[in-house]
Amino acid sequence: MLDANTITSGADLTAAYSVSGVFALIWYVLVAVALWKVFSKAGYPGILAIIPIVNVFFLVKIAGYSAWLGLLYLIPIVGWIFSIVVAVRVGRGFGKGGAWSFFLLWLLAFIGYFILGFGKATYSKPE
C-alpha cells in the first residue's frame, strides 16, 4: 500500500532544488531588478516589476497600449508577435530604434532592460 508521505517526499520541490530551478530563480531576480528601474523611469512604482503577471501588464502600458491588451500574451502565436511589438514600442519610448529593441528587448531582454534601466535613456510615452 502506498503511503502519502512516501509519494510526496519524492516530489519535494525537485524543480526548485535542481540546477535549472536555481538558474531560473536567479534569472527572474535579475530581470525583476532591471524592470524595476525601467518602471521607475517610466513613472510607475518599481515594486510592480516583482509581481509575475502584473509586470507584463505594466510593460504593455509603458509601450503605450491599454493594459487589457496584455491578455494577448495568452494567445500562443499572437502573444509572440505582440511581445515583439511591445518590445519595439518600449524601445521607442526610451529613444531606441527598432532593430535595437528587437534584439536587446525581445531576444536578449535581460541585457536590454538593464541598459534601459541603468543607462542614460529617458522615457517619453510612445505615440
Score class of each variant (00 low, 15 high):
residue 25 L to A: 12
residue 106 W to A: 02
residue 100 W to K: 03
residue 111 I to R: 02
residue 127 E to C: 11
residue 114 F to H: 07
residue 75 I to L: 04
residue 69 L to M: 13
residue 29 V to A: 14
residue 108 L to W: 06
residue 89 R to T: 13
residue 4 A to D: 11
residue 66 S to R: 09
residue 34 A to K: 01
residue 28 Y to K: 06
residue 42 A to M: 06
residue 49 A to G: 05
residue 70 G to C: 03
residue 4 A to G: 03
residue 27 W to I: 08
residue 80 W to E: 13
residue 73 Y to V: 02
residue 110 F to W: 15
residue 49 A to Q: 05
residue 90 V to D: 05
residue 114 F to D: 01
residue 7 I to E: 09
residue 119 G to M: 06
residue 54 V to G: 06
residue 9 S to C: 05
residue 22 V to I: 12
residue 74 L to I: 14
residue 79 G to V: 03
residue 33 V to F: 11
residue 1 M to K: 14
residue 92 R to K: 15
residue 38 V to H: 01
residue 107 L to I: 13
residue 83 S to G: 12
residue 14 T to A: 13
residue 9 S to M: 07
residue 70 G to Q: 00
residue 33 V to I: 15
residue 74 L to P: 09
residue 35 L to K: 01
residue 29 V to Y: 12
residue 93 G to E: 00
residue 37 K to P: 01
residue 30 L to R: 10
residue 64 G to Q: 02
residue 110 F to M: 12
residue 90 V to H: 00
residue 22 V to S: 02
residue 36 W to Q: 01
residue 17 Y to K: 11
residue 30 L to E: 12
residue 78 V to T: 06
residue 84 I to K: 04
residue 38 V to N: 00
residue 113 Y to I: 09
residue 41 K to Y: 05
residue 87 A to C: 10
residue 66 S to K: 08
residue 107 L to A: 10
residue 87 A to D: 04
residue 123 Y to F: 15
residue 87 A to H: 08
residue 66 S to D: 12
residue 80 W to I: 15
residue 126 P to F: 04
residue 62 I to P: 02
residue 35 L to V: 10
residue 111 I to N: 00
residue 103 F to D: 01
residue 22 V to C: 05
residue 39 F to I: 03
residue 12 D to V: 15
residue 123 Y to V: 06
residue 31 V to D: 08
residue 60 V to N: 02
